[in-house]
């Protein structure tokens, strides 16, 4: 009797949850971008919101910027939000490393991944007039004497990629951190550094214009528009994949149907032709990975970075 009562209660609870989730969404959904307007995450989030809103009835996705603390402010806000699907985080790779590196007050497990919309593999770049024609030339030189490498900052995913590259090849680099991509680009195009590790999305348009060259891309596939660029493995750099990601995540206890709804919504957005075109024009390769695949990407990124962070005592 007691058992069935409990079972009944649990079922009713679960059902009411489902009922709530079935109506979802009944009001506007907050898409929290933890950065200021105008950046890559903000721009892509606004593109997605605009496309998604053409599929939604009676509710809209509203982008809200909660900037500060290198993303930690907005990320923490979502970690502590009600798990009802009305607060969604524009999630980036920094969520994985921020607890270790910046003492962020959340854990990666505080979020349930929804879907990834953009994977940005690391690329090895050199100035247009660099003497290095292939990645192997560069590695050979860097084994002899350290090369100056232009990265977005110390203890960023780009710096960690450099350390992983050193571990895999024995090449030595001297890291020159920059504040913002503009400074990195200036140093590279002006020939003030030997090489750099950048995000593909930032590098591609400049490689196409001929102001820089991409020697290798840390992905398992070739870029459609520049298929001549070898992958890190083909170039013998010993790292299979090194990519940062952009996607959606919700607070950990969000009901499953809501996660599925959002994940399917992202899929519809991904299949939209105008969205595809706009993303490509902006330099972001549109991708779609559902909740389970996104979780795998996050786990693999966490494994890659956490060892490097510990070995190099970063953030301490």
């Amino acid at each position: 009797m007691m058992k069935s009562l409990i079972l009944g209660l649990v079922l009713t609870g679960a059902l009411s949850n489902v009922a709530l989730a079935e109506d979802y969404p009944t009001r506007d959904i907050d898409l929290v971008v933890p950065f200021a307007p105008g950046g890559a995450v903000d721009v892509t989030s606004r593109l997605i919101a605009a496309t998604a809103n053409t599929f939604l009835q009676g509710a809209e996705i509203v982008v809200s910027n909660r900037a500060g603390g290198g993303g930690v402010i907005g990320q923490s806000f979502v970690a502590g939000a009600d798990p009802d699907g009305y607060t969604v985080l524009a999630m980036t790779s920094s969520v994985v490393t921020n607890p270790q590196l910046k003492g962020a007050p959340y854990k990666v497990s505080d979020y349930t991944p929804v879907a990834a919309y953009n994977l940005d593999p690391e690329v090895l770049v050199v100035p247009a007039n660099s003497p290095f024609k292939t990645a192997q030339d560069l590695i050979a030189a860097a084994r002899q004497a350290p090369l100056n490498m232009d990265v977005a900052g110390i203890a960023t995913s780009h710096h960690m990629a450099g350390i992983a590259l050193s571990n895999a090849t024995g090449a030595k680099f001297s890291y020159l951190p920059a504040k913002g991509f503009g400074e990195q680009l200036q140093a590279m195009v002006g020939g003030h550094v030997d090489c750099g590790l950048w995000a593909m999305g930032e590098a591609l348009s400049h490689a196409k214009s001929g102001s820089i060259r991409i020697l290798a891309v840390a992905s398992d596939v070739h870029d459609e528009s520049m298929p001549e660029i070898p992958t890190f493995e083909e170039a013998g750099l010993g790292i299979p994949i090194w990519a940062t990601f952009r996607g959606w995540a919700v607070p950990a206890d969000t009901p499953e149907p809501v996660v599925t709804f959002l994940s399917d919504l992202m899929k519809k957005v991904f299949e939209d032709a105008t969205y595809q075109q706009k993303m490509k024009e902006g330099g972001y390769e549109p991708t779609y990975r559902g909740a389970a695949d996104f979780q795998k990407i996050i786990t693999s990124y966490a494994e890659q970075t956490s060892t490097i962070i510990e070995e190099n005592k970063m953030g301490k």
């Binding site: 307007p37 950046g39 606004r46 214009s209 001929g210 024009e281």
Partner: peptide, 14 residues
Amino acid sequence: IGAMALHGLVPGPL
């Protein structure tokens, strides 16, 4: 840059 990217324009030589 952000405003341009929203309209599919990437500042730079291209």
